[in-house]
Amino acid sequence: MALTRRQLGAGAAAGAAFGIVRNARAASEKVAIGILPLVSHAPTIIAAARGYFAAQGLDAKLVTFQAAEPMAVGIASGDIDFGVTAITGGLVSLADKGAVKIIGGSLAEKKGVDGQKVVASNAAYAKGLTDIAGLRGKSYAVTTAGSSFEYVAYKAAQKAGFPASDITYRPLQTIPACIAAVKTGQVDAWDMLPSIIAILLHDKAAHVIAAVQDFIPDYQVTTVFTSTRNIDKRAEVVKRFLAGFSRGIDDYDAALVAKTMAPKEVDAIVAEIHKYVFAGMPLAKARPHITNGVMHVNKGAALNVASVADQLAWLNANKLVPAGSTMKKLVDTSFVKTF
């Protein structure tokens, strides 16, 4: 008996020691954050560069991905802790399996700020595709079925008052393939972030026929998400990540959207972003690509739940996600302001 008690005592002491170690380590908790080399991921880059995560006691490591899908899978598998991506069938499917959850909002359409555009190829434009009503019976470039491109086309059809099935979708998998198809007139229309649309317009390879914010107001384009394991076991870390991330958003907004920041400070921020985005170009050449066509990011990573619900309803209606995928499984609204 006595022996057992002594053993128990030793166990408790060891537990206490572990507790101390864990608290000490919590001061600098390691987190891996997935980003894509796009300007829309600048808030994360800025927060990491300016030490906003470190200030929250997070030892943040940025991991660059080339596509959103592997990033989502990386979060589900636990290799990555946080990521920012569009609401796709893949993300919802992972959420339905209980692996990931949306915890905040990022990129969004906002009146008065540059946003996504729908473009027509030169050939289609010449034949009269000049507004979204003209999309009826035309072909539309998408990356994959269930991607945000298809959602945008669906909303355009809804706004113009014709069934979305009257549009022919052409899955082309990658953004470069979509660009090539638009440039050569093999698809009639496509939608994209303003920075890439600017390049197409510069090459006189397409015409803008509509702004996405005109028919999907306050569209929540990308969201912040993490693994359910993090929410359950490291809720404190999630909160601290969002706090650091929010400071990154504030700087992003001041430097690139509202442009209230001092030019010198802006330069420093652009240089930081350039380490990840358009890194293959010299800074002077990359600068306009970084500073032009910057979209709005929700302050405090606030989440437009209504927009997310609308996108989920569309995915469900088109059977692009497991039957019965719900907002409850997809979104955890306890971390940020929602609207």
Partner: peptide, 12 residues
């Protein structure tokens, strides 16, 4: 191939 790609992107 298209079926596989779509399944991949939907994580089905």
């Amino acid at each position: 191939g298209a079926y596989i790609l779509q399944a991949g992107s939907l994580f089905a």
